[in-house]
Design a protein around this nucleic acid. Structure first.
Length: 856
RNA sequence: GCCCAGGUGGCGGAAUCGGUAGACGCAGCGGAUUCAAAAUCCGCCGCCGCAAGGUGUGGGGGUUCGAGUCCCCCCCUGGGCACCA
């Protein structure tokens, strides 16, 4: 054994050994319980960032721990390889996205291997490879034929200068990120997954997932947003024809307070009204500026304009004006809303701004209504009762909704309806680097899905996008084809799929990566995933889409389970400070924190010494350029230090603010572990303690060892909190360092303790543990030690002594002492007499094993 | 704007079911070792106070023998908002 801890040498040796023995190759084995441990696969952006290190170390700790505890473990890895950054790199460097992506994959694979993760690399997949995406195309055609996928118009961000569709991320303050042009909304045809058909099941399914964090389930439930309300109609007559304007509301009880209705700018009524109204047409055009992102829509100034059209109130027949509102979303509900300014805060503000009437129809006892300012109670469903509402006066929320709904139904002007906030999933992307949508457009046959025997539709990999439009449109060899149905010349669809489609089923493909079909029987051997680990930022979209896709695959007979992920661990983000400079046009340039230093309390760029602006502490991301490269850490200290530090710095679910300090401490601990083992082994080999009389010190250390074994198992398995598991081992090592003596019994206990620490830390720092095990117990694989219950027994325990709830001292009592004996001993103690000043106790609280509180 | 989290020493964090606030680590301070330094080892380390003691978990209120933990209100920070992944 080397006296010095040399991480590079031992890590290389351990990794070579694992590779040689195929230690992590997973095989189906019905004799053992399976444990499918999956970390969200990375986007191959170039190099690993700290978020990856954190994510995959968490997964690796759980995978290795479960393997030690007798599970048949599968831990695969792959690449979420399609996406926008590859096109951006192509624009910047002139490299085809495919070449850029494959080079990144090679680099990042080597980095992952250097971190020593227990991954079955034989199952590696990349979503940009035809043998992966062909099955996605195959399923698409099946679902298209079933009607689960359909085509409709949808609104996108359009850059009029670059003549291209922009992602929401590419719209900055309403302008295109490259051109700086004002972004417009544009309607184009897109393919949609009918996810709303599964809304109820996706909602109900959350209750079958006890292994998911409550907060994620709450977010998903709110996202699906099931609400019951009333769909009702405002009749009107236009151009001599009778028609109805439909709206949906959860507050039908306020129907008598409607003073206007608001429609979206794209609503047919708005379009019709604008025909002879240039001012309105101009306003509608204005509404079409800006991004389609909901956050932008919700935070922009609420504006509106009267269309001049009137509709009739469904119950009173009273005339109600129709306005266009820039805050009304065409894609949600009916594209129109009824406005009750008195009882909806947004309508209230809008009515005051435009001088529209505010009519109170709900009252709360003891409160006075005023049109001057909004008060919380105006919108209170619980306490409010109807007023100024004719026959509905005096009814509470529920009764009023039911009565009004019944009356509307009798008139044929409304019905009770369940509404979801969830919208169908539009998957068409006007981009090159994605999975081609397997549709052929034929003048005679319409949209024809590509037959299975003609799949995959292969994406050409030699393309370099230039930032304007989809380059596939310029590839005649791709676009021109024969209609699969009639054989006549036809055009291939050039839109590609949302990359969320690839990441919605990769977890299943890992079970059978070589299958010559989408999935084979092995999928059911491994699914559902026992532990899924990934960033909290995926709490809604990715996880909802994957759950949805799993149900689609189930309904295709490909899997038997209802849910893909039995247990979910949402790791917090690795965040870091951001710094930027802004040019005259308002364009921001972001600088890496590594290139920034503080001079006289001002952040400046190291290269030019001029100040930069601090942009807050945010998720490490490419766009903010605040990622920290873990490679330097690995190069300097080794993989085990990087792993130990990321696991020790914060519990997995919390966000982790990056700082370089602390890494040194993790490395110091490993050196100390190494040195203590070396020192111990200088005395020659010794067997671990296996029985016999012990002194106080050795007995206490053994108790701590076995307590720690219990705690660490609980921390890893149940609490999934690795920082405290590591801290417990540090405490144990601190105690071991204080154990003196070289007699055989003491050395046996020291051997047992070191073996225990090596086993407990093996999932976290596997390389050093592998090397230490080879010295401590040559020829024996690391095994999780059984807890010795007899070592845990204590004769005496210490209780906390309080007087009036304040800590005043401690009390040593026999472990078996009963309540009365403890109370007597407490009352007799010196501290109690001093602090009670002789007053008789009013109450004595005894919490067994914890404390005694004397109340006077 | 809406939905979901979080806020504890100089810093990262611990306190698992309402029961000793600050485990463990970083930084700092003092000492040992050394020609010297690094490394290592030992000790101290919330704040006020010489001490006794008081005080302290974003702010305000409440429940309780006892609140970081439960309830109400407020402030701040982060994540998501459907085309970043």
């Amino acid at each position: 054994m080397q006296e010095k801890y040399l991480p590079q040498d031992i890590e290389r040796a351990a990794q070579a050994k694992w590779a040689h023995t195929e230690a992590f190759r997973a095989h189906e084995d019905p004799a053992k319980p399976k444990y499918y441990c999956l970390s969200m696969f990375p986007y191959p952006s170039g190099k690993l960032h700290m978020g990856h290190v954190r994510n995959y170390t968490i997964g690796d700790v759980l995978a290795r721990y479960h393997a030690m505890r007798g599970f048949n473990v599968l831990q695969p890895m792959g690449w979420d390889a399609f996406g926008l950054p590859a096109e951006n790199a192509a624009i910047a460097n002139g490299v085809p996205p495919a070449a850029w992506t494959y080079a990144n994959i090679d680099h990042m694979r080597a980095q992952l291997k250097a971190l020593g993760f227990a991954i079955d690399w034989s199952r590696e997949l990349a979503t940009c490879k035809p043998d992966y995406y062909r099955w996605e195309q195959w399923l698409f055609t099946r679902l298209f034929e079933k009607g689960v996928i359909y085509k409709k118009m949808a609104t996108v961000n359009w850059d009029p200068v670059d003549q291209t569709v922009l992602a929401n991320e590419q719209v900055i303050d309403g302008r295109g990120w490259r051109s700086g042009a004002l972004v417009e909304k544009r309607d184009i045809p897109m393919y949609f997954f009918r996810i709303t058909q599964y809304a109820d099941e996706l909602l109900a399914g959350l209750d079958t997932l006890p292994g998911w964090p409550e907060r994620v389930k709450t977010m998903q439930a709110n996202w699906i947003g099931k609400s019951t309300g009333v769909r009702l109609a405002f009749p009107y007559e236009l151009d001599g024809r009778e028609d109805r304007l439909w709206v949906f509301t959860t507050r039908a009880d306020t129907l008598m307070g409607v003073t206007f209705v608001a429609v979206a700018a794209e609503h047919p009524l708005a379009t019709r009204a604008a025909e002879n109204n240039p001012a309105l047409a101009a306003f509608i055009a204005e509404c079409k500026q800006g991004s389609v992102a909901e956050a932008d829509m919700a935070t922009m100034e609420k504006k509106g304009m009267d269309t001049g059209l009137k509709v009739a109130h469904p119950l009173t027949g009273e005339e109600v004006p129709v306005w266009v509102g820039n805050y009304v979303l065409m894609s949600y509900g009916e594209g129109a809303v009824m406005a009750v300014p008195a009882h909806d805060e947004r309508d209230f503000g809008f009515a005051r701004k435009y001088g529209l009437p505010i009519r109170q129809v709900i009252a709360v006892e003891g409160e006075t209504f005023s049109t001057d300012a909004w008060a919380e109670w105006y919108g209170d469903k619980q306490r409010g009762v109807c007023v100024n509402s004719g026959k509905y006066d005096g009814l509470g929320h529920e009764a009023a909704v039911n009565t009004i709904a019944a009356d509307l139904e009798a008139l044929g002007l409304g019905e009770t309806k369940t509404q979801f906030r969830l919208r169908d999933w539009g998957i068409s992307r006007q981009r090159y680097w994605g999975c081609p949508i397997p549709i052929v457009h034929c003048d005679h046959c319409g949209d024809v899905p590509v037959p299975a025997d003609q799949l995959p539709v292969v994406l050409p990999e030699d393309v370099v996008p230039d930032g304007s439009g989809n380059p596939l449109n310029k590839r005649a060899d791709f676009v021109n084809c024969a209609c699969p149905k009639c054989g006549q010349p036809a055009r291939r669809e050039t839109d590609t799929m949302d990359t969320f489609v690839e990441s919605s089923w990769y977890y299943a493909r890992y079970a059978c990566p070589d299958a010559n079909q989408m999935l084979d029987a092995r999928a059911n051997d491994w699914l559902p995933v026992d532990q899924y680990i990934g960033g909290i930022e995926h709490a809604i979209l990715h996880l909802l889409y994957a759950r949805f896709f799993h149900k689609l695959m189930r309904d295709e007979g490909l899997v038997t389970s209802d849910e893909p992920f039995a247990n979910l661990l949402t790791q917090g983000m690795v965040i870091a400070e951001t710094f930027y400079r802004e040019d005259a046009s308002g364009k921001k340039t972001w600088f890496s924190p590594a290139d920034v230093e503080t001079r006289d309390g001002v952040p400046v760029l190291k290269s030019d010494g001029a100040p930069v602006i601090h942009g807050g502490t945010e998720k490490m991301s490419k766009s903010k350029n605040n990622g920290v490269d873990p490679q330097a850490l690995i190069d300097q200290y080794g993989a085990d230090t990087a792993r130990l530090f990321t696991m020790f710095a914060a519990p997995p679910e919390q966000s982790l603010e990056w700082s370089d300090a602390g890494v040194e401490g993790a490395n110091r601990f490993l050196r100390r572990l190494w040195k203590m083992t070396w020192d111990h082994l200088q005395g020659g080999p010794v067997a671990a303690y296996a029985g016999g009389a012990l002194g106080d010190a050795t007995k206490a250390l053994r108790r701590q060892l076995h307590q720690t074994l219990q705690k660490v198992a609980d921390d890893i398995e149940r609490r999934k909190q690795f920082n405290t598991a590591i801290a417990a081992n540090m405490e144990l090592m601190n105690a071991l360092a204080k154990l003196e003596g070289d007699d055989p019994m003491t050395r046996a206990v020291r051997q047992e303790t070191l073996e225990g620490v090596v086993a407990m830390l093996a999932p976290i720092v596997p390389h050093i543990c592998e090397a230490l095990q080879a010295e401590l117990k040559p020829g024996c694989a690391i095994a999780w030690p059984a807890v010795d219950e007899s070592a845990l027994v204590q004769d005496e325990i210490e209780l906390v002594l309080q007087v009036n709830g304040k800590l005043r001292g401690a009390l040593r009592v026999p472990a078996a002492a009963d309540r009365a004996a403890i109370e007597a001993q407490a009352l007799a103690s010196e501290v109690v007499r001093k602090h009670t000043e002789g007053k008789p106790p009013k109450k004595v609280v005894v919490v067994p094993g914890r404390l005694v509180n004397i109340v006077v």
